[in-house]
Design a binder for these strands. Structure first.
Lengths: 145, 145
DNA sequence: TATTGTTATACTCTATAACTATA
DNA sequence: TATAGTTATAGAGTATAACAATA
């Protein structure tokens, strides 16, 4: 006895995934808020912690505009999590260098997101969650390529 | 030989699903654009075609503000896909009534989305796609409940 | 001339407050 | 008084153009 959903789009895979993405985005923002972080600041910091990159390179990787990146880096500096460091080889560029506080902040953010996601994904079996991750990766790869 | 992704968040299920949702949202908007429709107009029209509802009721169901709904209904009227009809029992309310053109527009929009999604989901087996839909539904139900 | 970071500006989207007509 | 629809306005977020410093 399938109950007809009120929303005619509820059976559409694409629509469900859009809604799910919005839900998870809000979940992440709510979880990170007590740490004083927005998702995009965390994202930039996480990439900067692994790769020595300029603002524009970070912007491209994270999918931000270089003009938007200015405010993001301003905020990371204000939080004491990164500094702008002039490149010695090209003095137009700022390398974004995480501070000593960054590693701890990244670890706490990861724990925070882990527990927030665990609460939502808790009903999924490990196999289901692994498959979900794999399918999302495949679809994103296909969409990008 | 696992290659380390550039993006440290690429292994996170939540992050992948956020990106996937954004990708699918853009996919839908691009597919619908030639029909002169945005996703939210289609969404409102699809719900209105199934249920006799006022603007505010539609707004709540679709997740829009009642003030935003004004412009959406304006656009549906401009496209000749729906009209505002004063409720006889409560003359403050407008019932949103799809026109004769609406059914055909909804069918073409559904076909357009089907083929756009088919192009992306094409590599998934029917079982994989069904599981993806089921998992998304379960997660959304859990997040909402 | 071209590029990096920056600022100013415009544009979209959404949210809030206040108005009108009806209840 | 309260509610449905509307308008005006403000705010957040993002994109475009132009500028200074450097290449």
């Amino acid at each position: 006895m399938a109950r007809e959903p009120v929303d005619p789009l509820a059976g559409r895979t694409g629509y469900l995934l859009v809604k799910l993405g919005e839900t998870l985005s809000e979940l992440a923002e709510r979880a990170l808020a007590p740490l004083g972080l927005r998702a995009k600041h965390l994202h930039v910091l996480a990439v900067a912690a692994r790769h020595q990159l300029s603002q524009q390179e970070l912007a491209e990787l994270v999918g931000l505009d270089r003009t938007s990146m200015v405010a993001v880096v301003d905020e990371l500096e204000r939080l004491g999590l990164a500094i702008r460091q002039r490149s010695e080889t090209d003095r137009r560029r700022y390398l974004i260098v995480p501070t000593g506080k960054a590693a701890e902040a990244l670890r706490r953010a990861a724990e925070t997101l882990d527990s927030a996601e665990a609460a939502l994904f808790g009903d999924l079996s490990p196999a289901e969650r692994a498959l979900l991750t794999e399918l999302a990766t495949r679809l994103l790869t296909k969409a990008a390529g």
